[in-house]
Amino acid sequence: MGTPNEQLEPALEIDTRLAEIERGLDLLINTTPVNAAEAWADFERCDFGTAPTLRLRPLEFEPDLVRRDLYNLEIENVTDPALHTLFRAKRDEIARQITALEDRDTSRFVYGSLQLYGGIAQPLVSTAEELLEIIPTQAPSTRTVTAGAFAEAARAEFDRYRDVYQDFPAHVAVRDDVSELMVSFGRLLIPEAATFRADRVEPLLHHEVGTHVVTYQNGARQPLTLLAIGLPGYDETQEGLAVLAEYLSGGLDPRRLRVLAARVVAVDKMLDGAGFLDIFESLRAEYRIPTRTAWTIAIRVVVGGGSVKDAIYLRGITRLLEALAEGNSLDVLFVGKFALDHIPLIQDLLDRDVLEAPWVRPRWLDVPGAQERLDRLRAGASVMDLYEGAVAA
């Protein structure tokens, strides 16, 4: 009869090719400005009066050739019903990524972004506005660390995982061509010009390493390669899980909650037709967002022609809280990168021994107070309940 994976070998070959094609697109890197530091300096020099010009790197692939490879995959021959459905959905998502990347810096890009990440419903906007109203502004933090210091802290965090999981890979790079802290295919990329609030270092490490890297490495150990790259629509759940990591480790402070809420408001304004300057000034004047933070939020929303991706953080944690209250287990979400809607599929593959239990357990589950916080969320909580009061500057 053969093992489950031997029986599924033809399907797993298509899985590998889908993952290779998406890896070649590198959507995250290719929608990140390469000149954010210079653009900020110019914006500050003109007294915040002229919208910045954001540059994106040239694509290093030929879209038509990638589409040809994509649609040459014989997904129709996959006999496992669950995998057949999954592969078709992933092929469609990759095709939308290709089109979105072709449409960068045009008015069409926002429609591709909406197809990839979804729109925002009015209840989410109302929640964001309520958070911004009830959470008071905080005095700016005066203690910051450089990109180099953050990289050292990140390497120490990787070492903590390697102490338990000897083969846990560590990839940390400080780069001058990224504008935001990010994980790309298991690599932690740190903007060279960035500074970080000292009290945000640990929560950010739990977010980036303890969630994005851990789920990447767990997925990389599975026979289904797409669990490392991400099943269709995985981003929302992945960011919700990363925000949960910040909360359970005691790092989801009022400033951070206000940023997550402001991102939703900024996306909503962009979809209503507001440009960079209108979004930037609205965040500062209406919602009392600090100038540099308002800049960061605004460029993330207008990049490429309009991106809705930043709404998925608040929406992701909202849906995750609902899932926890319904009794869903967190453990299955560490198998790899996938959406909440895929839990029945993943559980089925686990039950059939196609997939294995997660290799790495996130450290943030075991920090002091994490289980008590998690128990409170399981009893029923909304995003509003994540606000635990003001903190000292």
Score class of each variant (00 low, 15 high):
A323M: 03
S282A: 10
D353E: 14
V209R: 01
N72Y: 12
I317L: 11
D105P: 02
T31G: 01
E74Y: 04
I297Q: 08
V178Q: 03
F280L: 03
F280Y: 14
L324P: 07
N30P: 00
T142W: 01
P344K: 11
A228R: 14
R255S: 15
L83N: 10
I75E: 07
V178H: 00
A51P: 12
Y387H: 15
D235T: 14
E208F: 06
V209I: 15
R300T: 03
D80Y: 09
A262K: 08
I297F: 01
R373G: 11
L131G: 09
A245H: 02
H207T: 02
Y71D: 02
D268I: 05
L132Y: 02
I312C: 02
A220V: 01
V265Y: 01
P33E: 07
G49R: 15
T293V: 10
R197L: 01
P136D: 06
E22N: 11
P344T: 09
L257W: 02
E180I: 15
A139R: 13
F87K: 04
N328M: 11
G389F: 03
D69R: 15
A39P: 04
R187I: 00
Y165S: 04
A228F: 01
G275S: 12
F150M: 02
E60L: 09
R200N: 09
V110T: 12
T137K: 06
Q217P: 08
A325F: 09
A19K: 08
G2T: 10
I289K: 10
V183S: 05
R162K: 14
A198F: 09
G327H: 06
Q371V: 13
T31A: 04
A51N: 09
R263K: 11
D385H: 14
G380N: 05
V178L: 03
T144S: 05
P136G: 10
A323S: 15
V308F: 03
V354K: 04
E180Y: 14
L248Q: 07
M1Y: 09
L349P: 09
S141Y: 00
R197H: 10
E76T: 14
P4W: 08
L320H: 11
L226S: 05
L365Q: 04
F334V: 03
A274F: 06
T296I: 04
L349I: 06
R221M: 02
A153F: 12
G306I: 12
G275Y: 12
E38V: 13
D199Y: 07
I134M: 08
L226W: 00
D163S: 14
